[in-house]
């Protein structure tokens, strides 16, 4: 089976233990951090395994690329410390089971774009920015055949990921595209980061949607009308797996004339949407989640945000209503880009 490439020695020689000391949901000093991460690495129980909100951020914080987050969830599973109540885990695992027949495998032309499990959001990939694409997973009935499975990190079920992912990769690969833009950065993170961390082979090259959008917007530079909007980006947990691509958020905003507001919870200190936290097993999770959301949105409001930009549909579902009740328009990044080139965004509400 696939083994996580984690080197405990790296942690031992790590000076900062950023993975835990920078955690926004646990208050951990350097000494404790080193002790706990070492315990975790050696398979012992640790409070970290109980208190982790599974926000993915330590993957980004680790300066050594040593995959502390992947380690934490592997240990949670091994030691039976589920972050969620059991029925939620069972529900989650069953969610990914395809049940409406086999996918239609067609030859995807380049450039190809994979919707993953978000075929219902096809309306977000309209217009000039997307019209060249050969789209994989456009049928919502078949979308679970393209489900990257990485969601199960929140469920501490890497065993499910490892079991299902090779089949999913095979299905995608059958479409024959060498380079694939992934609609969701969780898919990108799966094929770029997770697969290499556990040694799953990926026969295609994943492309981050924002990198694609940035390049495409550059091609269409003449058509861009600066938006002059004050925007805040709701950074999803999955983007912690591709920190090297995060700069494209700013780059795109600069290109389309959107002003990033000056706020506290941004980039590396971004807050989770709370969608996962609210259901966790720990005492008071629902209120904790509400508190995170409240701080997050309050921060946006204080910074004068007009538009909250989303990447992840899960964040969007959790937070779009909340931000709009505070007078901030929720919008997907792709729609914002479409607006900038004079198109009418499909999901613009």
């Amino acid at each position: 089976m696939f083994e996580l490439k984690f080197d405990a020695n790296i942690c031992l020689s790590c000076g900062n233990c950023d993975c835990l000391t920078r955690c926004q949901y646990m208050d951990i000093d350097r000494e404790t951090a080193k002790t706990e991460i070492t315990k975790i690495a050696s398979g012992e129980d640790s409070f970290v395994l109980h208190d982790c909100v599974t926000c993915y951020a330590c993957e980004e914080y680790c300066p050594m690329g040593n995959h502390p987050f992947y380690l934490i969830v592997e240990r949670q599973e091994e030691l039976d410390i589920p972050p969620l109540p059991k029925p939620l885990i069972e529900r989650g695992i069953q969610t990914g089971i395809p049940f409406r027949g086999e996918p239609e495998i067609f030859e995807a032309k380049e450039p190809a774009l994979c919707m993953g499990v978000f075929s219902d959001l096809m309306y977000l990939i309209q217009g000039k920015l997307f019209d060249e694409f050969s789209v994989i997973s456009e049928d919502p009935r078949k979308m679970f055949h393209y489900f990257c499975q990485l969601m199960y990190l929140h469920y501490a079920r890497t065993s499910v990921i490892k079991e299902r992912l090779p089949g999913i990769i095979e299905t995608i690969a059958k479409h024959g595209a060498r380079e694939i833009v992934f609609f969701h950065d969780e898919c990108y993170g799966t094929y770029d980061s997770y697969c290499s961390a556990v040694g799953i082979e990926v026969p295609f090259k994943p492309v981050h949607l924002f990198e694609y959008l940035y390049n495409k917007l550059n091609e269409l530079r003449d058509e861009i009308q600066p938006l002059n909007m004050k925007v805040a980006y709701q950074r999803p947990c999955s983007s912690r797996l591709s920190p090297d691509k995060h700069h494209f958020v700013r780059d795109i905003f600069d290109l389309i004339g959107a002003q990033s507001v000056d706020r506290e919870y941004v980039d590396e200190t971004a807050l989770c949407c709370g969608g996962t936290i609210q259901g966790q097993r720990r005492e008071g999770s629902r209120l904790r989640s509400a508190d995170v959301q409240e701080r997050n949105i309050e921060d946006m409001v204080n910074a004068g945000t007009e538009v909250c930009v989303f990447n992840c549909p899960a964040c969007y579902n959790t937070m779009a209503g909340m931000v709009s009740r505070r007078g901030i328009r929720p919008v997907y990044m792709s729609d914002l880009c479409r607006l900038a080139i004079g198109e009418e965004p499909a999901g613009w509400r």
Partner: peptide, 23 residues
Amino acid sequence: KMELIFDDTLGHYIRSGDGGYLG
């Protein structure tokens, strides 16, 4: 109302791992 129902009334099931709050 939410606190009364989902935390005070159902919190016990969540902590025991037998019930999950889905939002």
